[in-house]
Nucleic acid binder design. Structure first.
Lengths: 359, 359
DNA sequence: TTGTACGCGTTATCAG
DNA sequence: CTGATAACGCGTACAA
C-alpha cells in the first residue's frame, strides 16, 4: 500500500519518460487541441504502460480551486432520510440537473435530527451546499456560513444570504383543511411533522409550538388552522399530535391517539403521505372504515399515495421541479450569482378516495 | 466571488498576522498539544477575526494523501436506487460504520442501469470504493481498477482483488421454493430481477439467461430451480418473468403475465419484496385471494414486508449486517489489508401470511 | 516552535 | 502552431 503510493506515477513521471514537459502531459488530458495528435497518443500510451490513470483528482481540485462536488446535508441518518420517498425523488432530480458528469454528490447525513456535525461540514470538499429541511438551529448551517460556501436551502429554514426553494406549505395545508371542512367535517385532528429535532412526539402544547425549530410544520399548521377557522372551528378544538419523524409507524401512533379522543375526529389531516398511510392503517385496525367513517388527507403526493387503498387524497407538490430548481440555483450560486428571491413551488389538492362527506 | 477567493485568508495570512510560522497555525488546528494554550487561543481568535475557517479541505487532502471520503457506486439513478428500501438500510449501516465524522460519503449514481460513468470514477476524490450490485460489465469497475483504488463489492459481480460482501442468494431462494413446494404447490411461477442492464423485461428465453450480467439473479434462479427440481418440477415447467428493475409496478406486471398462463401458477416466487408486493396487488386486482388461491414469496424482508396485507412470507437477509460488513471491509482495505475471502451474509425464511397450502 | 521540503497538478506567458 | 517555463494553490510533517 505505502509502496504503491510511493511508486505511483505522476504527470512528471510520464513527462520524463516521454521526454516532454509536465504541462504537455497535462494538456494531453485536458486540452487535446493544444498538442499534436501523434504526441498525445504517445503520451497516453506511455501513461497506460506505466499504470498512470490520469491526473490526480485532489491535486486537480487544489489547482483549479474547484472541489467538483455538491454537498447535500440531511437532517437524519440515511435510513430514515431515504424512508422519505419525497427525498429520493427530489434528490434524483437535483443530481441529474447538476451532474454534467463533472460533479459528484457528497452526502452529509445528519446525526440525530440535528443535521450533520459542524466538523463534517468544515472538512467537506465541496463547492456548494444544499441543505434539506434542517432545523433552524442546526450547527451545520453555522459551519457553512463560517466557510462562506454558497448555500441553497430546500424547504427550511431561512438563512441570510442563501438561495432557497420552498413549497407553498401554508397554501397546501389550507387547501387540505378547506376540503375536509367543505365535506362537513367539524371534528378534525392533525398528525404533524416534528416541531423540533429533539425526537419528542405526542400531543402538542402551545409552548412547544412557540419554541419550534421547523418552519414547515408551523406553516402547514397555520394553513390548517386558517381554513378551519373560517368554518368557525377554533384552534383549541383541533387536537394536534406531533410525530417525531416522517414514518408510517409514527402516523399510526398519532392517529391511534386521535381516535381515542372524545369526540372522535371524523377527519385527520396529516402533514405527509407517510403519516397519512400510517393513519389509514390505524383506522383499519380500529375497525374504522376510510373514508366511510374517517377521512384522511396527506401531503406530498408520493407514488405510494396513489397506490394506497383507498388512494390517498393529498396535497401535491412537484418534487421533481423542486429538485431541479435546487440544482439550478446551486449551479447559479457556483457562478457567483446572488441568492435572489426564494423560489416557491406551487401545490394543488389531489382528491382521491380517502376523503368523503361526513355522514 | 472571484474577489472572495482572492482575498480568502490562508494559514500564511494568519501566521504573518500573529507573527508565528505557518506550521504553528497548522498545529493550532490539528495538534493542539504542540503549542501553548495561550498562543493557540490567540491564533484562533485572529483566524476568526480574519474570517479564516480553518485549513482548506482540499489542500489538506493533497498533503495527507487522504481524500477522506468513501465513494458509493450505484447501478441506477438516485430515484430508482432509493425506491429499493433494502439499499437505504444497508447504506445507513455502512455510513454509520465508517463515519467517524472524518469521512464523508460520495455518491456516484448510475446512468442507465450500467453504473456510474467511467469519467465520474476517474475524477472522484475518494480513498475507497464500494460498488453496489453492478452488472459485471460496468465501465465504472474498469475505471476503479485503472486507478487502483481499493474496492468492496456488495452483492455482485465478482471482481479480482476486491473485497466482497454477498448474500447466500442461492440458499435463500432454495428455502423459498422448498417452502411452497412443501405446501403442495406444483404450478409455480417466478418474477425475477434483471438479468442484464439493458432495461429489457418480460418472459425469459434460455439465451438471455446465458448472456446474463447479474449473478444474483442467476443464483436465486438456480436456488429456486434446485428446490423445485427436487420435487420433480422441471425448469421448463416454471415460467419466469424478468422485471427490468426492482419496483412494485414491475412485479405487478410480471405477476399479471403469470396469472394469464395456462395452467395458472398457484405460487409465485419473487426475487424481492417490492416485486412480491406488486404481485400481491396483481392478484387482488384479478380477484385472486392471497394466500387462498395464490401464494406469494418475497426476498429481502424489508419493513414493508411485515407491514403488507397479508404480511409477506419472505427470505430474510440481514441488511444491517451487510452494510456494516461492507463498511468494515472498506475500512480494512484502507489500512492496506488484502481483500480476503468473500463475506457471506446468511439468510432464513420468514413464514408469514402470504403463503398457504394448495387447495 | 520553526524551517522547509514535499504533494500533484493547472494555466498563463514565452520561445522556437 | 507546438511545446516549454515557471508561478502559483494550501497545507502537512519532520528534522532542527
Amino acid at each position: 500500500m505505502t509502496q504503491d503510493r510511493e511508486r505511483r506515477p505522476t504527470l512528471d513521471t510520464i513527462a520524463q519518460r516521454v521526454g516532454v514537459s509536465r504541462a504537455t502531459v497535462s494538456n494531453a488530458y485536458n486540452r487535446p487541441d493544444q498538442l499534436s495528435g501523434a504526441l498525445r497518443e504517445r503520451i497516453i500510451a506511455t501513461a497506460k504502460q506505466l499504470g498512470y490513470a490520469g491526473p490526480d483528482p485532489v491535486a486537480r481540485s487544489l489547482a483549479t480551486k474547484q472541489a467538483g462536488s455538491v454537498a447535500f446535508m440531511l437532517c437524519d441518518g440515511l435510513s430514515s432520510a431515504f424512508s422519505d420517498p419525497a427525498l429520493s425523488i427530489m434528490l434524483d432530480a437535483l443530481s441529474s440537473t447538476m451532474d454534467t458528469g463533472e460533479r459528484s454528490l457528497l452526502l452529509l447525513p445528519g446525526v440525530s435530527g440535528d443535521g450533520p456535525r459542524a466538523q463534517s461540514v468544515m472538512r467537506a470538499q465541496t463547492d456548494v451546499v444544499v441543505a434539506y429541511s434542517l432545523p433552524d438551529n442546526a450547527p451545520a448551517l453555522e459551519a457553512v456560513r463560517a466557510r462562506d460556501l454558497p448555500l441553497v436551502v430546500v424547504d427550511q429554514p431561512f438563512v441570510p444570504k442563501s438561495a432557497r426553494v420552498r413549497v407553498d406549505d401554508r397554501g397546501g395545508a389550507y387547501l387540505a383543511a378547506k376540503h375536509v371542512a367543505g365535506l362537513g367535517h367539524r371534528h378534525v385532528g392533525i398528525v404533524g411533522l416534528g416541531l423540533s429535532a429533539d425526537g419528542v412526539g405526542g400531543p402538542v402544547s402551545p409552548q412547544r409550538i412557540e419554541q419550534a425549530h421547523f418552519e414547515v410544520t408551523l406553516d402547514r399548521l397555520a394553513g390548517y388552522r386558517e381554513a378551519l377557522g373560517e368554518q368557525g372551528i377554533l384552534a383549541d378544538a383541533v387536537p394536534f399530535w406531533e410525530a417525531p419523524g416522517n414514518a408510517r409507524e409514527m402516523g399510526r401512533e398519532g392517529a391511534r391517539w386521535l381516535f381515542g379522543l372524545e369526540p372522535r375526529p371524523t377527519a385527520v389531516l396529516c402533514m405527509s403521505d407517510e403519516l397519512a398511510l400510517g393513519a389509514i392503517r390505524a383506522a383499519n385496525e380500529l375497525g374504522l372504515s376510510v373514508p366511510g367513517e374517517v377521512s384522511v388527507v396527506g401531503f406530498d403526493d408520493t407514488p405510494a399515495a396513489s397506490w394506497a387503498d383507498p388512494p390517498l387524497t393529498t396535497v401535491r407538490q412537484d418534487l421533481v421541479a423542486k429538485g431541479r430548481q435546487a440544482g439550478e440555483l446551486a449551479l447559479r450560486m457556483l457562478d457567483g450569482a446572488r441568492p435572489g428571491r426564494p423560489v416557491t413551488i406551487g401545490v394543488d389538492l389531489q382528491v382521491r378516495g380517502s376523503t368523503a362527506a361526513v355522514v
